[in-house]
Amino acid sequence: MLKKIFYGFIGFLTLFIIYYLINKESIDSQPKKKPVESVSQIKERQQLEHAIKKVYEDAGEELSIKVKKIISDAQKDMDFILALKPSQVIAINRQESKRKEITLKDSTKSSRLKYMALPDFRKYTGGEERKEIFFKYFLYLVEGRNQQILKMRKKVILWKRDIETISPKNKKTVQYLAQKYQVEDFDIQENSSWNRLLARLDIIPTSLALAQAAKESLWGTSRFARYGYNYYGQRCFSRGCGIIPKKRGSRKFEVTTFSSPRKGVNSYIHNLNTHPAYESLRTIRSRQRARGENIKGLILVNTLDKYSERGSDYIKDLKSLIRYNKLAKYDVY
């Protein structure tokens, strides 16, 4: 009797398992229903498709796979698509194709740093993960520009030591630099003119550049950073020169747009090296050079009271950023 019950139970269980597997396979093989779009969703998708098509047409160049992926990934962000200018698409295209290498030196050795693509900082969680990616990327840009400046500065110092033997070509280079760095009444025969040029032709300490980029761009996530590659809050004052801030009151300025992050960083460094508001920064930096010292961000930051309307509070924030994130270790020149 017990054997019959046992074998009956086994048989029933076997049939049940077979029935379950057949039905499961049948259910899995059925096509899944696509979610029904609402009228507003259809309209938004059509607007996106139209905006993307316009970007492709206006760019006037064959877009690389990377650029197509950037635009594809951005379809959820309507503001990004509408703000993406043809010049920016072309710039991304060209930046992707060149992939130039730059030399990056630290306090102990030289290394080659290959092209580094701009990360989407919003994809990283706030805190240490985003900080690491942010500092790595801007270290690449800032150090690249500082290396270029140091290379030219060394040449100028050599030419200054023996003015009489400078070639006509190099004289033109010096005159060009004097104009670029806005050195008034430059006289190639005057030692003081060379000193004024060298006071401007110098690096911005990496710690300071990293801290300001983080502060001004909200760690790379601000509207101006994402749409205009402006990571330093730089302004322009002609109509249509940049992005109009949502809260600017009666003041007539826009936030400058750049064709690439590199150009934004280079403009920031040039601004500190030439604008009258930062004369004290350049003076203190020249004194550090005369004493044979490395240029320190924690010293020069004290001269940036005119960079922000917040004045001394802004300086305190930058100092905290430099100290908390141990950025002074990058000031090795």
Rank of each mutant, 00 (worst) to 15 (best):
Y307K: 13
A277S: 15
N273K: 05
N266D: 15
T303W: 00
K306D: 05
Y268E: 08
G264S: 02
L300D: 03
L272H: 01
N266Y: 08
T303Q: 10
E279D: 09
R287C: 04
L281C: 01
L304D: 07
G297C: 08
T303M: 03
L272M: 09
I269H: 03
V301M: 13
L300K: 00
G297I: 04
K263S: 14
Y278G: 03
I299D: 09
Y278C: 04
S267C: 11
L281Q: 01
S280F: 02
N271T: 12
V301K: 06
I299S: 07
R282M: 09
H275E: 03
R291M: 12
E309G: 14
L304H: 11
P276D: 02
S267M: 07
S267W: 04
S308C: 11
G264T: 11
T303V: 03
K263R: 11
Q288P: 00
R291F: 03
L298I: 15
S267V: 05
K263Q: 14
V265I: 02
E309W: 09
L272I: 11
S286Y: 06
T283Q: 15
I295T: 13
K296S: 10
E293R: 00
H275F: 12
S308H: 13
N302K: 13
S308E: 08
L300C: 05
Y268G: 07
N273P: 09
L304R: 08
L272V: 04
T274Y: 12
Y307R: 13
Q288Y: 04
R282Q: 09
L281S: 01
Y268V: 00
I284F: 02
R289F: 10
L298D: 13
V301D: 07
R282A: 12
G297A: 10
N273Q: 11
I269W: 04
I299H: 08
S286P: 15
N294R: 02
T283D: 14
G264M: 06
R285H: 05
T274D: 05
Y268H: 13
K296I: 02
E279Q: 15
T303G: 05
G297S: 13
V301T: 12
V301N: 09
N266W: 05
N271S: 05
Y278V: 14
S286F: 08
P276A: 06
V265S: 08
I284S: 01
V301R: 10
S280N: 07
Y278E: 00
S280Y: 09
